[in-house]
């Protein structure tokens, strides 16, 4: 269960709109002490597709990823794997990941993670409702032989 919820917050942080995440974090105005385990580095992940959507894997192309790892104390580590090339976004993600394992969990969840989820859901709903408006309603014309 711990893994399931960690998976969810790490996913929200990774795919967050970077400006939105940064503004949420900066608004909290938290001063956190940490040590780097790995300073932010920009790299890539190769995205794989499937042949014919269900067959063998194949490489489609890469996506830029920034990652870093830090610890708050010897026990608690945070990992910031995020989409894009923003080192600050990656650091915020690692800090949030670490803080979600402490008593500050509720503050981070309420002020950041929940808001990221809501933001993404709103975007999703916007796309779905616009797509729906372009749905085609076909009707078949009466053909000669049907008469």
């Amino acid at each position: 269960m711990q893994n399931e919820s960690r998976k969810q917050w790490l996913s929200s942080l990774a795919t967050a709109d970077e400006n939105y995440l940064i503004s949420l974090w900066d608004n909290l105005n938290m001063k956190i002490e940490y040590n780097w385990l790995r300073e932010p580095e920009i790299g890539s992940v190769m995205v794989q597709g499937k042949v014919g959507a269900t067959g063998d894997n194949f490489n489609v192309g890469e996506v830029t990823i920034t990652r870093c790892s830090l610890n708050l104390d010897k026990k608690i580590q945070g990992h910031g794997y995020v989409q894009g090339r923003n080192k600050y976004k990656s650091k915020i993600a690692a800090l949030c990941d670490a803080l979600m394992q402490t008593e500050k969990k509720e503050i981070i969840k309420r002020n950041i993670i929940d808001k990221l989820i809501k933001y993404k859901n709103n975007k999703r709903n916007e796309i779905l409702s616009k797509t729906e408006a372009t749905k085609v309603d076909f009707f078949t014309l009466v053909r000669g032989e049907d008469k």
């Binding site: 790299g43 992940v45 597709g49 499937k50 894997n57 490489n59 990652r67």
Partner: peptide, 12 residues
């Protein structure tokens, strides 16, 4: 860019 790894195959 250093290659961090490969994704799981996407579910289109």
């Amino acid at each position: 860019l250093p290659r961090i790894g490969s994704s799981k195959p996407i579910e289109t």
